[in-house]
Structure formats: structure tokens, C-alpha cells
């Protein structure tokens, strides 16, 4: 836990450049949930280093679009192409953080590293996430914002070219929002891609889609 890692966290974890030049192409996507059509005719192309912001009211399908890109939801129409990147090139951070209350913060990070096939870098990750001195604390005792920070760990542990973030700023304080901006900036600088939904303007976004807007 040195001053050095605090100052330049991105250099520590994220690669300088992703091996496969990534791109993401959404072509006239449509999504139906249950018997309802959420959206149709959504198209956008992202090149390496670009970030797409998804705006729209509750229920307009922001989360569903993210889940479609992650491959969880079937497409009612349209195509998604990733270029040469392998299918396992995605990180998805949703509302449900996937954290286990019975584990401590340190255990969570160590297990996360193993689950994502990465070396254990707990000691360096904790200060980066703003969770220093909390390694022994139970996840159950973390605040909502601290949980979100902890859930971001996998972004740094296993570098993947496409990040899907569902309302990443929710519950985060100013420092937490800066953390996301820093991580996103480093990721984009390395040629990564981001698709993020949000209710407020995202500083790192270069393109946007407004769902539910009258066509």
C-alpha cells in the first residue's frame, strides 16, 4: 500500500492496450420482455476507445439492452457483432452485485481473482478501490457504496475489452464516481469499449442512445 499505487492505479492493473482491437456493432436491435415490446430499431457502432451511454426512463429497456449485449437475453430482432474478440470478452456489472455477505472483503477479492483466473492482487486492489483497512470486514457490514466499489474489482482483476455497466454511479460518493471515471478512462485509453446505462450524464461517454424516445 504505497503512495505510488494510490497515484497511478490504472497502470497497475489494466493493460496498456488490449491484444485484439475491439469493436461493437449493434444493428436494428429489438427486445421483447414477456409479451411487451421494449424497444426496436436500436443501432450503434463503437470503435476501440469509445464509450456508449444509454439514457432513458425506467422501464425503457436500458438493462435489457445491456443484458442482450452480454448474451443473457435473446434478440427479438437484429444482430450484435463483436469483431474478432472472443465471446468471453465481457464484464457485466449489474444492480445485483453478486457479493456474498458471509465472506470478508479480503476473501471476496482472493476468490474473485481465482474465479476470473487472475493472480491474487488483494493488497494492491484494496487502496485502489478505497477499501484500505477493510480486508477483514464482512461484506454484510459494508455500506451500499462500498459494496459497489468491491463489485468493481473484477474489472481490474481480469482485463476484458468490453465493459457493460448498469447505472455504475448509483450509491457512489464523489470519490467513488471519480474512481469509475478513472477506471473507465484507463480502459478506454487502452482501446477498450464501454456501454453504460445512467440517469445522469456520464463524463467518459462518447456516444449515446436515448431509449424510449419518440422515433
Amino acid at each position: 500500500m504505497t503512495e505510488n499505487t494510490m497515484a497511478k492505479p490504472q497502470k497497475f492493473f489494466l493493460p496498456n492496450a488490449y491484444p485484439e482491437p475491439a469493436f461493437l456493432k449493434l444493428e436494428s436491435l429489438a427486445c421483447s420482455r414477456g409479451l411487451r415490446l421494449l424497444f426496436e430499431g436500436v443501432s450503434q457502432t463503437l470503435k476501440a476507445g469509445e464509450a456508449l451511454a444509454l439514457y432513458g426512463a425506467n422501464g425503457s429497456g436500458k438493462t435489457s439492452l445491456l443484458r442482450q449485449i452480454a448474451g443473457f437475453l435473446p434478440l427479438a430482432a437484429g444482430t450484435i457483432s463483436f469483431g474478432d474478440t472472443p465471446p468471453n470478452a465481457v464484464h457485466f456489472i449489474g444492480h445485483a452485485d453478486g457479493l456474498k455477505n458471509a465472506l470478508s472483503v479480503g476473501e471476496t477479492l482472493a476468490l474473485d481473482a481465482a474465479l476470473w483466473g487472475a493472480p491474487d492482487t488483494t493488497t494492491d486492489l484494496l487502496p485502489l478501490l478505497g477499501l484500505q483497512n477493510r480486508a477483514w470486514q464482512k461484506v454484510a457490514d459494508l455500506s451500499a457504496g462500498q459494496r459497489r466499489r468491491l463489485a468493481l474489482a473484477k474489472l481490474c482483476l481480469a482485463p476484458r475489452p468490453l465493459w457493460l455497466l448498469d447505472e455504475p454511479m448509483t450509491a457512489l460518493d464523489t470519490a467513488g464516481q471519480e474512481l469509475i471515471d478513472t477506471l473507465a478512462g484507463a480502459h478506454l485509453a487502452a482501446g477498450g469499449l464501454i456501454v453504460a446505462s445512467s440517469h445522469m450524464p456520464l463524463a467518459f461517454a462518447t456516444k449515446e442512445i436515448v431509449l424510449g424516445a419518440p422515433a
Partner: peptide, 13 residues
């Protein structure tokens, strides 16, 4: 309207 076969709502409609 959607042409996808899996679109249930289109079928029921």
C-alpha cells in the same frame, strides 16, 4: 412489426 419467430407477443397478437 417484428419478424422474429421467437417473438411471442407477435404470435399471440
Amino acid at each position: 412489426m417484428l419478424k422474429a419467430l421467437e417473438n411471442i407477443s407477435a404470435f399471440y397478437a
